[in-house]
């Protein structure tokens, strides 16, 4: 039996709020059932993330396991005021990917600093109610970006491609890549803050 069918994600979707509740509850109760629910939600998405980043099937499975080993160990440090569950788990997965593929940078992406107790508060940061709605808003906002912009955002996200690699790959001047990425992020920020409909 498969835990998760590849049905475009409609069946396996939880809101940010539900995910944060799950992660927090696992931190407190250590319930295997809650752990399993987190796995069912995130493992198929992490698999996509790691495979697109250049991992083999075996390595992707290994990195998914390692991500969940860290979730198992550190869930009690999760603080929903600081980040959504998806963001928290993303930073774990990204750090593992760097640890594996970009050893020369691993000292800059130690987990410790992402799990620090201190809360970063700044007027530019999303309000907590935005945090909860963020993924839903991103889902709506991404298709509103011009294709050339969202492509560049995703190339960096999935394929770990630097600005100059993206420029090479798309045969664009470096400056164009940077300005499209900047425009995309400015636009996304407006969309996510609800400044634009």
């Amino acid at each position: 039996m498969q835990l998760q069918g590849n049905d475009g994600g409609s069946r396996n979707y939880l809101s940010s709020q539900e995910l944060s509740v799950l992660l927090q509850s696992f931190g407190k109760t250590r319930s295997k059932e809650v752990f399993r629910q987190l796995f069912i939600f995130f493992a198929p998405r992490l698999k996509n993330y790691f495979l697109k980043g250049g991992a083999s099937l075996e390595l992707a499975d290994e990195l998914i396991q390692e991500t969940f080993v860290i979730i198992w160990r550190k869930a009690e440090l999760y603080d929903e005021r600081k980040a959504s569950a998806s963001t928290w788990i993303y930073t774990i997965a990204r750090n593992l990917r760097i640890d594996h593929f970009r050893k020369e940078r691993r000292y800059l992406y130690k987990d410790d600093r992402f799990f620090s107790k201190e809360l970063v508060v700044d007027e530019t940061q999303f309000e907590s109610h935005h945090q909860a709605q963020l993924s839903e808003r991103v889902q709506k906002a991404l298709p509103l970006l011009p294709a050339e912009q969202s492509k560049i955002i995703k190339l960096a996200f999935y394929e770990d491609a630097s600005h100059s690699k993206i420029a090479q790959y798309l045969q664009l001047p470096l400056g164009t890549v940077k300005s499209r990425m900047r425009l995309a992020l400015v636009r996304l920020r407006k969309l996510l803050k609800g400044v634009e409909p």
Binding site: W88, R94, L134, V138
Partner: peptide
């Protein structure tokens, strides 16, 4: 990072 998390989630 919140944006990246949302990309993973969706």
């Amino acid at each position: 990072e919140a944006l990246a998390g949302a990309l993973l989630q969706t």
